[in-house]
């Protein structure tokens, strides 16, 4: 865990604390924070800053009955809690939550590469990717931001090497070809806010089929 060298960019951490990240990116940030003490500290620092803003702002008068209503409810039953999913194997709690506590359902993308789609909608997509050692993810660019978090194994691309817990944030400028490292297959959590576009003809034709 202490070997993590690629972290969440500061503005994204601030956006997570403020609750403005789309769910697909929010899940990646929550997963990285589950693995990384440095980013957890950063997230909590932003919460403290949010609290300072809350505390410094002007108040608004409350209705007369609100306080007595709330005090009267203290002895009542605690509201039901959404139980926080726990880590299972290599999948941290937020990934298990996105998986609805089930095993990933892998679908082949060819060449031994597999994916399991966790979320897919107008706000982006979130998937698990399974890449055999030494194998490349098809060359691709993207229209928006892509976040890739390593859960097992490693990958390397034009920008560096990424091991367990490392997070790569790529924007539309980066056309990269991640290649899985030797050893265990590389399993990553990948989020994009726009469909990936593959540069070779075949995968582009297959794109609607695989929803990638």
């Amino acid at each position: 865990m202490s070997n993590i060298t690629h972290h969440i960019p500061e503005p994204m951490l601030a956006a997570y604390a403020a609750g403005t990240l789309p769910p697909v990116f929010e899940t990646v940030v929550a997963t990285h924070v589950s693995m990384c003490a440095a980013c957890r500290a950063g997230m909590q620092a932003h919460e403290i800053a949010g609290g300072a803003v809350l505390e410094a702002g002007d108040g608004a008068d409350l209705s007369d009955a609100l306080k007595s209503d709330v005090l009267a409810l203290l002895d009542g039953p605690a509201p039901e809690d959404r139980p926080a999913p726990k880590r299972k194997g290599i999948y941290p709690g937020p990934v298990m939550a996105a998986l609805k506590n089930r095993e990933p359902r892998w679908k082949s993308l060819g060449m031994g590469v597999r994916q399991s789609i966790l979320m897919d909608g107008p706000d982006g997509s979130l998937r698990l990717l399974h890449i055999p050692p030494g194998r490349a993810v098809p060359d691709h660019g993207h229209n928006g931001i892509e976040m890739t978090l390593v859960l097992q194994g490693s990958f390397a691309d034009e920008t560096g090497t990424f091991g367990v817990g490392d997070l790569e944030v790529a924007d539309e400028e980066l056309e990269h070809t991640p290649v899985a490292g030797e050893g265990l297959p590389c399993i990553c959590l990948a989020a994009t806010d726009a469909p990936l576009r593959f540069r070779t003809l075949m995968p582009r034709l297959l794109q609607p089929l695989f929803r990638i």
């Binding site: 604390a17 909590q44 919460e47 403290i48 800053a49 949010g50 609290g51 300072a52 803003v53 809350l54 505390e55």
Partner: peptide, 9 residues
């Protein structure tokens, strides 16, 4: 944590 930050979250 600070109370205000906890409440903010």
């Amino acid at each position: 944590a600070q109370v205000s930050g906890w409440i903010y979250q």
